[in-house]
Design a protein around this nucleic acid. Structure first.
Lengths: 242, 242
DNA sequence: CGCAACAAAATTGTTCACAATCTTGCCGAC
DNA sequence: GTCGGCAAGATTGTGAACAATTTTGTTGCG
């Protein structure tokens, strides 16, 4: 995600007096194309826009205060990411995940998370994981027992962020990101399944122990086992999750 | 990788006489947006358009006979795939791979090809691989000895196609495709490195033997080893490949 | 000769009008 | 009452004109 963002003088297009059609009604301040893309990605990932919903060009154009052609460009990007489907002359709808695809996403995620765990272990000094070992032994255990699942999930995402950063593999990170934006809802629903968080916590402690030892191969193996176990929960409670 | 590419007549933009905007000069028959996208993807993958080259909207618009707004949409899709970079008011250029990224692509490809080999072994009956075992024992060996590298590569891609089809994992297949379209040239250059094809052939035979035995775990392990070995060649002959 | 300022050309970005296509609701025939 | 057209409305697709910006070329000064 290149952050060379910008420059771009903030001045607003001079006076542009246009007498008729006076000031634009811009519902929310002007947004650049990239921003619109990110916002829509997030909305789809969170299912603020539910699967199957239709996206209308004009509507979005007015909401974000950008030209309709720009919305079309954003649609192209969303389509190439597989988040929406476009049918000629019929518009764009949010893609619906089918079961087979969710399993495939989990299979791919298994090997990618394994890769990141291994590379993180190889790249970072073993001691650097100590704080996470402690965190998962104490605080995370407590969050789980007191039922604070939101903060538990936040802790888990922090773990993933640390591993991803240490692995230093932008390609893999980006691919997992694209899996996340499709399955975020599913993943969160699995965590709150009966017994899943407890099992997951044990598995994560095992992964962290291997990383703390500097055993990269074992960290990869355990992380993959962890993902397979999550997939097994998905299969078992399929009807509740999808 | 669809090769419907097309050549594209080399003639230069016709007379462009259009006095009163008469019949459209369509250089090549009308093309849909998706087709334009595929063609440009192929051109970039083959380096018909070299890294760093600038893509001009009007030029492409005229060549394909599609509106410029459509070219812009295609650019958005190419950008989201990481094939081009767009700088505001400066246009679009084909992204240049840096060394670190190529290594990362190989690391990811290692685990994904491993996944496909495993799932292919799990899904297809062991006997179904016999013809490939034979092919890699005989014909491929001969192609190598007689130096017919193009056909050797074609045989290798046939192997990949078979495995991918059997694995039946569209998500993984698509991700590997996106890796291919960025590294196709590099991959082909590695194959023609001294000794690489010979080693690769031996490794592929081992993978196929495991698949023929129905040993999915071993097939995955061997395929990953094969990819690591290819990456090692890349590291060794780096300066000749990039 | 170098170089800075300016002018011209090329290119990208935006806007709008309209055409093509699909959707919806209505009306009548059976 | 149901079904099949048919017209009106909504939505997407196209193309050109226009505006903004960058690039290129030129001129004149030191």
């Amino acid at each position: 995600m290149s952050d060379k963002v910008v420059t771009m003088p903030a001045r607003k297009r001079s006076a542009s007096r246009t007498p008729a059609r006076a000031a634009r009604p811009r519902v929310s301040g002007k947004a650049r194309g990239v921003e619109v893309l990110q916002i829509l990605r997030a909305r789809i990932a969170n299912q603020d826009i539910p699967p199957g919903a239709k996206l209308k060009e004009q509507e979005l154009s007015e909401e974000f205060g950008v030209p309709r052609t720009r919305i079309r460009e954003v649609f192209s990007a969303l389509e190439s990411r597989g988040l929406i489907e476009r049918i000629p002359n019929r518009g764009a709808v949010v893609t619906r995940l089918d079961l087979a695809q969710v399993y495939q996403l989990y299979d791919v995620r298994e090997v990618l998370e394994g890769l990141l765990a291994r590379q993180a272990t190889e790249n970072a000094p073993a001691e650097s994981w100590q704080d996470l070992v402690d965190f998962f032994a104490g605080p995370m255990q407590r969050l789980l027992e007191s039922g604070e699942l939101d903060r538990y999930i936040a802790g888990y995402e922090m773990f993933r962020a640390r591993v991803t950063a240490a692995a230093d593999n932008a390609v893999a990170a980006q691919m997992i990101d694209s899996i996340f934006e499709k399955t975020k809802v599913v993943i969160h629903r699995i965590i709150i399944l009966p017994g899943r968080a407890e099992v997951g916590l044990v598995e994560h402690r095992a992964v962290l122990a291997a990383m703390r030892r500097g055993d990269a191969a074992e960290a990869e193996r355990l992380r993959r086992a962890n993902m397979r176990s999550a997939k097994a929960y998905l299969q078992r409670y399929q009807k509740f999750v999808l």
